[in-house]
């Protein structure tokens, strides 16, 4: 749940990037960190292994400045995608206000995407939240890969809930900010 501190006139929201291993969650955060104005971003904090795979989480605080007198902050997190780290994903998901589910568009990754989304549904429900009402935006990443599945096929398997979805190439930034805008608007609408 978001936190509104009336005395300090601050609003905090937590957004988590979720998805299977190597789908591009960290790349999304890196692109945002490189591209937003220096007044908005804080340091990008990464707890990664020596091989640069996320071990615990990446964390990027964004300060949107004062909106109607309230200092508004979005905290972006990624979870480690590797199957092994399920309990860690539960830990990072704790207290989140919205999730970006990053799916890897490559044909041979469809099964991993489906499994990861099922796991997300289970983890959200375990935190006593209704999955149907939980703010989620889908991102179909790696659209530039030659073996990318058609969007309609991905929709059929991943978007039964009719979430807003964006096609993306996170390495070059295509769709990264569209995704961030969608999830931010959705989270704000549920405040």
């Amino acid at each position: 749940m978001a936190l509104i501190n009336v005395a300090a006139r601050e609003i905090h929201c937590k957004i988590v990037y979720y998805g299977p291993g190597m789908c591009g969650k960290t790349t999304n955060l890196q692109y945002i960190h490189e591209s937003v104005s220096p007044d908005v971003k804080g340091d990008l904090l990464s707890i990664a292994t020596e091989t640069e795979r996320t071990l615990f989480f990446d964390f990027l605080p964004l300060d949107l400045g004062k909106v109607r007198g309230f200092q508004t902050r979005f905290h972006l997190y990624t979870v480690p995608g590797q199957v092994l780290y399920e309990r860690t994903r539960v830990a990072v998901l704790n207290g989140s206000d919205g999730v970006v589910f990053v799916a890897d568009s490559q044909k041979d990754k469809l099964e991993e995407n489906i499994k990861s989304l099922k796991e997300l549904a289970m983890n959200v429900t375990r935190q006593n939240k209704k999955f149907q009402e939980f703010p989620i935006v889908l991102q179909y990443n790696k659209r530039d890969m030659p073996n990318a599945l058609p969007v309609a096929v991905m929709d059929r398997y991943l978007n039964g809930m009719n979430w807003t979805r964006h096609e993306a190439i996170a390495t070059t930034g295509v769709g990264v900010f569209d995704t961030l805008k969608s999830i931010s608007r959705l989270v704000i609408s549920k405040l």
Binding site: I4, V6, I11, I32, S35, V36, S37, V40, L62, L64, G65, V67, R68, F70, T72, G173, F177, L180, K181, S184, R185, I188, S189, L191
Partner: peptide, 21 residues
């Protein structure tokens, strides 16, 4: 009651302004 009814619109404008390449 806390944020005022126009907060959401202002917030959406800010999001559009700041979150871009």
């Amino acid at each position: 009651e806390v944020l005022g009814s126009s907060f959401r619109t202002s917030m959406e404008d800010t999001i559009d302004l700041l979150f871009k390449d």
